[in-house]
């Protein structure tokens, strides 16, 4: 097929499966916490008015918390993925685009 295949040819990623498993685990952790927000709002909306600290209620703390948690989990995920890539693929992760070999030099 004319148009298929990656935009740039990538090196083999030995950490792919490991990263995928970690991603799924973190996705479920975040998904459960997000679902908690939706469930509380749906079933016990009054709870969202409970004051927690600095005069802020549960709705604001939980809502902003979900945004901040996404950032923190993203950074954690990147740290572990980068570490694993370096370990399994070599320094730099080994996933940079493959340079086209200069065939003439090899023949020499």
């Amino acid at each position: 097929m004319a148009g298929h295949g990656p935009a740039v040819k990538l090196g083999k990623d030995n950490a792919s499966e490991w990263k995928s498993k970690l991603g799924i685990k973190l996705f479920f952790v975040y998904g459960i916490i997000y679902a908690g927000f939706v469930v509380i709002t749906t079933i016990e909306p009054e709870w969202m008015s409970i004051n927690l600290f600095w005069g802020l209620n549960l709705a604001v703390v939980y809502g902003m918390g979900l945004i901040i948690l996404a950032i923190v989990m993203g950074l954690v995920y990147n740290y572990f993925c980068t570490k694993k890539e370096d370990e399994l693929n070599g320094p730099g992760g080994g996933m940079a685009p493959i340079e086209t070999k200069d065939e003439t030099k090899e023949i020499k």
Partner: peptide
Amino acid sequence: FDGFLYSIGYLAGWVVALFVVAEPMKRLGK
């Protein structure tokens, strides 16, 4: 606060993008 629910949901959606979709999409597509 109901408007802020959109902010929460829009951002949470990026978690799915990062943890599940980003790398496979890069690997498979053109």
